[in-house]
Design a protein around this nucleic acid. Sequence first.
DNA 1: CTGAAAGCGCTAACAG
DNA 2: CTGTTAGCGCTTTCAG
Lengths: 338, 338
Amino acid sequence: MSVTIKDIAKLAGVSHTTVSRALNDSPLINPETKERIQRIASSLNYTPNFSARSLVLDRSYNLGLFFSTLHSGTTAGFLYEAVKGVNDVIKDRYNLIVRGIDDYKDFHNINRKSFDGLIVMSQSASDQPFIEYATEKEIPLIVLNRQVDGVQVMNLVPDDKSGAYRVVEYLIRQGHRRIAILEGKPGFKSTQARREGYDEALRDYGVQIPGGYSVPGEYDLESGYAGMNRLLEHPVRPTAVFCSNDDMALGAVKAITQRRLKVPEDISVVGFDDLLFSGFMTPALTTVRRPIEAMSREGAIRLLAFIEKKQVEKDTVYFHTELVIRESVTTIQEANDQ
Amino acid sequence: MSVTIKDIAKLAGVSHTTVSRALNDSPLINPETKERIQRIASSLNYTPNFSARSLVLDRSYNLGLFFSTLHSGTTAGFLYEAVKGVNDVIKDRYNLIVRGIDDYKDFHNINRKSFDGLIVMSQSASDQPFIEYATEKEIPLIVLNRQVDGVQVMNLVPDDKSGAYRVVEYLIRQGHRRIAILEGKPGFKSTQARREGYDEALRDYGVQIPGGYSVPGEYDLESGYAGMNRLLEHPVRPTAVFCSNDDMALGAVKAITQRRLKVPEDISVVGFDDLLFSGFMTPALTTVRRPIEAMSREGAIRLLAFIEKKQVEKDTVYFHTELVIRESVTTIQEANDQ
DNA sequence: CTGAAAGCGCTAACAG
DNA sequence: CTGTTAGCGCTTTCAG
């Protein structure tokens, strides 16, 4: 059997209570006794039994990092950055339990006893029931990446609007005027925010675009492909396309190259998300990077503040995105330049 | 306060002992009583307190999934596949705690009480001390991906030798005869195994290679770059190069294109690992894929068998690798063909 | 088949 | 500053 506080107590000639206090650095204990006990503890290679402590303190020291799913495929970078970000913050004070929400048949095992707090890395609205369940059970919770409607939660999301604004602004500064948009999934907040950034940039720079330059999409490869094909048949072909995410951008590039046109020489393409493949595709995609790791880190900090100090800020906080300039945009000479 | 077995006992008019037994499906209990108790429990939405159970059973229900580091950068795919593979197996019977070994200042908190078992996804020998520590503490342990020397552990590793054999065989079948090798880090088992696969394929097919076709390396980009430059100065330039991993292959491609030569037209390049970027580089790299997810899944199964049934197989098991054919190899017409 | 009692290792009133 | 005592929720002898 491993060593307990009682063993230490016997050796030190004190009660196990005193040992407990000494080891928890209580101010009530005589400094000398305390030091003596701590020396004995470490010489015995004592490690506290977390189960016992958890039982009496009613804390598990477990933090859950939950993804919408672990089976989608685009999540590798996400997972990596999120795990890294959170682990950096919690050090070895907590255990980070990583899981896909869809791993659970029911949420029975998700409770205050088993989790001191929950971080949900939300990639779609499919995890809404989980979020509502956790809220109802009053488990400390923070939701990252997706803006949550309906329930009031701590919420950290990328600033989609200003990200979209900046990448469209970049297109304009490269001389583009005929800039089309492939929109995201209808009803998603991010779809709307990215659209607003696009609109605003065009307005601020006084860029007029022809009708039919806005094509609906679904945030997936196929709709990017289909949407781009529609744009290519437009009587006034755009010189640049803002795709609402990188998946759609990949689909768009495919549609373009299939018609024996070239990116960026014939049409410039930009995306949003900066997925792992985006830097390695040909041409490497100019896009907007979401601060997943930073968000995760800050999410962990806020969650701990909530758990440990009862500090709450149930508002939505926006995180800055970053323009990643690569090779999929060309510079256009404006008419009056040549 | 949440509901405990005592609450259920009161409602059912039995002792809490009986409730405990009923809920654990003990054969000692009258089927009718059992069913009645279970109904009450679920109507009360009872969830067991894991801390209490852990305390008395001396099990934590925590499994650790430890990576050498979480800060290296090439780990995203690894992490993803490993987490997925293990989670698929353990369902919600265990908590999967994901962490980088280098997150720990000391291993004090790693013990039998806190972890029922450990899965180490080893990417370098740097985690050897951790492995030895866990072994010494007699924590159930399985090491994945790297063959461990020194200590006897359950060990699952990719079959590097046959993977190397197959990719070199593929080169030979595409008509290549002048096939060079960029070797991995000296002293690593995988370096040796991959070299052996290469040697054996050449021998089996009776391919003779000039001296100087074997260049040492370090498994990194730089040594791939430097090694390839050495090969390019060889009087009899190879038509194909087997790089001992994908990082080195990327370095090699860079060296080749810098000399205004083309891959695969002038020189074919193959790698090993199938990193995430490998499919997206230009040209997409033909390489050998390691079965990370399958290994993780099997690793979890074996670890659980050990924990729950005390089944041990402390031997090394090899997992099949998979040849991934992409675009970095060209077919050569043999002399007598034209 | 069921219950009483003990105890896992720890923390926290309470009393000195 | 230290010790006594109780109890967290659960499982497990041991008796019936």
